[in-house]
């Protein structure tokens, strides 16, 4: 059972670093921390493909790079296809042991990249697709994406007309492809995140990992709150941590000791400042309903 003030035993986190200091992510960037932890979980040999996103910039300007794994920057909508081709090349060269990872943002996954991703999932390509989700087009200046939550301010959904529709349920979209492995994770639970990447590496076929990734600049909050806010997303059931094997066996991996009201998560972030108590109450209902549906699936696995 987990609570907000949980202290973690870091002895399970591999010491090896595959990302060096000197990257150019903003202070408090959830995406940079997520990558650092994910690579520790994945281990080597691993190759990365990254489409247009904050992560286009984060590794550093040419000729510098902060990555100790080979990395190819691909076009915005092309991740699912590029990783398919790369994996095929390794297979043809007898290098099937190289783990091919696509690493895309929410815009590159929920929106412009979903076609190539869906096709790669349908073909059950032997790759890992990671969506680091900071819930808007952060690299271009915080525009609304299909991953932006209902009610949120973004630079294209002003506070007077915030996002009117909920976030796409990307997990259920991916599970409809009958993929062998799906997981949600966040850098606020590093042991859980690393374990999921470790496990994903051992599975063949399409694996999808959805990372909630705090963005202080876009969520309008102090940099030092990133980890706390990501943790509150988990403890409030806004972003439950679970994994699904064979698109069927659901397992909640982090079970909060006590469910925190979504208000605590929402009130820490300027992007929700305009929400009334009534709005937040409605948001709470939506989150509860979604979690109820998930819980039925967790219970089904637990009782099987």
């Amino acid at each position: 059972m987990y609570s907000l003030n949980q202290r973690f035993d870091n002895r399970d986190i591999p010491e090896e670093e595959y990302m060096t200091p000197g990257h150019v992510a903003c202070a408090g960037c959830g995406a940079a921390l997520s990558m650092r932890l994910a690579l520790k979980g994945l281990g080597m040999p691993t190759a990365l493909v990254i489409p247009a996103s904050c992560w286009t910039v984060i590794p550093g300007l040419w000729p510098m790079t902060s990555m100790k794994v080979p990395l190819f920057h691909t076009a915005f909508e092309a991740t699912g296809a590029t990783i398919s081709g790369l994996k095929a090349a390794y297979r043809k060269r007898g290098m099937d042991n190289i783990c091919v990872v696509g690493w895309a943002g929410d815009g590159g996954t929920f929106d412009i990249g979903i076609q190539a991703l869906s096709a790669a999932a349908e073909r059950n390509e032997d790759v890992i697709y990671v969506c680091y989700d900071n819930e808007a087009y952060m690299n271009t200046g915080i525009q609304r994406s299909g991953g932006t939550p209902i009610g949120a301010w973004t630079s294209t959904t002003p506070a007077k007309n915030p996002k009117a529709v909920p976030k796409k349920d990307i997990e259920e979209i991916m599970l409809a492809h009958r993929i062998p492995y799906l997981a949600t994770a966040t850098a606020a639970y590093p042991g859980d995140l690393i374990a999921k990447f470790k496990k994903a590496r051992t599975i063949k076929g399409m694996r999808f990992i959805h990372l909630l990734s705090a963005c202080p600049a876009g969520w309008k909050m102090p940099e030092n709150l990133s980890v706390e806010v990501m943790r509150l997303a988990v403890l409030s059931n806004i972003f439950p941590l679970y994994e699904v094997e064979n698109s069927e066996i659901y397992r909640q991996t982090i079970i909060p000791e006590e469910i925190v009201p979504v208000e605590r998560y929402v009130r820490l972030q300027g992007r929700f400042r305009h929400l009334s108590d009534h709005d937040i109450a409605r948001y709470q209902e939506m989150i509860d309903q979604r979690f109820e549906r998930l819980k039925e699936r967790f219970d089904k696995t637990a009782n099987a």
């Binding site: 092309a78 296809a81 990783i83 398919s84 081709g85 095929a88 090349a89 060269r93 096709a119």
Partner: peptide, 26 residues
């Protein structure tokens, strides 16, 4: 050869670019 049945021409060329970056003829 591996034969990848993609969902668009955009992806067809993207697969080839990925394969070429993996060191094979595409």
């Amino acid at each position: 050869f591996d034969y990848i049945r993609v969902e668009s021409e955009h992806s067809a060329l993207s697969v080839c670019i990925g394969a070429s970056m993996g060191g094979v003829r595409a």
